[in-house]
Design a protein around this nucleic acid. Structure first.
Lengths: 226, 226
DNA sequence: CGCGGCTTTGATGTTCATCAAGTAAAGTGG
DNA sequence: CCACTTTACTTGATGAACATCAAAGCCGCG
């Protein structure tokens, strides 16, 4: 909390344009909430009252499609503006959000954000930009995934986790095989099969949730071709 | 042109909040351009200089993925804000846009729009809302399509055209079978096959590009089940 | 310590892409 | 305006990719 806050906001690039007074208002109004891995932050259909910002951790945004099936829309890491998805268009959440890792989320009353958009033109433009970027990113990911075959998708998700989330070729999967499947539209069994294939081909090492990418180049080719 | 303009803008709900002066500025700066069916309005990679608004007609937004393959991102009808896709996040277009029917497009210098966002808080909030809606719509369409099988997708696209675009159960397809395939991720041959299937089952009538939905309820079930 | 969910592998079936081939329609140039 | 070329449409046959079903071991958790 506290002045920790300033560091956090500055890093976010979003609140740069705020005046001291506005910034103070924001710091005051915001709430920081810690979640354990696996907790649900928002449920589809709930009223939107806050603008959410992921300070630390990893989230999944998803919608429940059948009685027992989920479709993952995306994964959000710090600096991503999770809440930006439908915050300004709907009064209720379109998607559910849960934590894939222990996470800290900052909640800023939506009214306050709108008020700041109203009063601070620079902030409004920055927010537009951020929102546009976020949406582009999510949409492009979906479009890319649609073009790939299962091997390509599996490679894609491994590379995404390695490069964008953990920034290391060695990391622990934050999700189950089942969830990977939901994320890239494939069955659990095939996720497993293809991961094993990659292991047998010497492209990755697997130890439970632990993944090490051994042959990065080859994985990139597989993702590309898809 | 001329006072035609006022009617158009009022209908759009976007420019409601502008003051007289701003509105006049906008009316002055905007350019209206007419396109024939099949023309390309913007090409992937081109510099974004204007905010585009479809006044009349039908557009497709797409990206070229291979040497001879396109992936259609969405179809835009009047009142949709085509340009909203990556206008604020990138300086160059991520997607190409072409006309599916004769169309009139209004182009407003992007700088002017940003300036208005800056100076008019209500406008900024409205724009945020519009943009969010547009993105939700596109993303949801992709997510929905991904869940459906080929019959479901075909039903989905027919219903979309019937209900959202033409508002009639009888209409002419604005696109080729190939383009339908690109829009809902399937091969031309299968589009044809399934359309024929629907015809044989008495769900639709086909005459070249002409489509008539005979059994709406059944089509909705097929789309739903997916 | 036992139950339920996750993981893994194998066998089987379905869906859909691909290939092929022919007809119809729509441009294109002389 | 007609031959020519190209593009769109259509149907059938085949095969590959992927989903589904089944069964068993594993692990964490109450």
């Amino acid at each position: 909390m506290n002045n920790n806050c300033e560091v956090c906001f500055y890093r976010s690039f979003l609140f740069d344009n705020l005046e001291k007074k506005e910034f103070a208002l924001l710091s005051l109004a915001r709430k920081e909430i810690d979640y354990k891995k696996g907790e649900i932050i928002v449920r589809e259909g709930e009223k939107i009252s806050d603008f959410l910002y992921l300070k630390e951790g990893l989230l999944k945004v998803y919608r429940t499609v059948g009685p027992r099936k989920e479709q993952i829309v995306g994964v959000a890491k710090p600096m991503d503006f999770v809440g930006l998805l439908s915050v300004f268009s709907k009064s209720n959440y379109q998607y559910s959000i849960s934590t894939l890792e222990d996470s800290s989320v900052c909640a800023i009353p939506l009214d306050l954000v709108k008020q700041m958009v109203h009063s601070n033109g620079d902030f409004a433009n920055t927010l537009l930009k951020k929102m546009s970027e976020m949406n582009d990113q999510i949409l492009n990911a979906r479009l890319d995934i649609n073009l790939k075959n299962l091997r390509g998708r599996t490679a894609y998700i491994l590379l995404m986790l390695s490069k964008e989330v953990y920034k290391s070729e060695k990391f622990d999967l934050p999700v189950s095989r089942k969830e990977i499947g939901e994320l890239i539209d494939m069955r659990t069994e095939n996720v497993i099969r293809i991961l094993s294939e990659f292991r047998n081909d010497g492209i990755i090492k697997i130890e439970g949730k632990g993944i090490e990418i051994v042959d990065m180049e080859r994985l990139e080719q597989i993702s590309e071709f898809g």
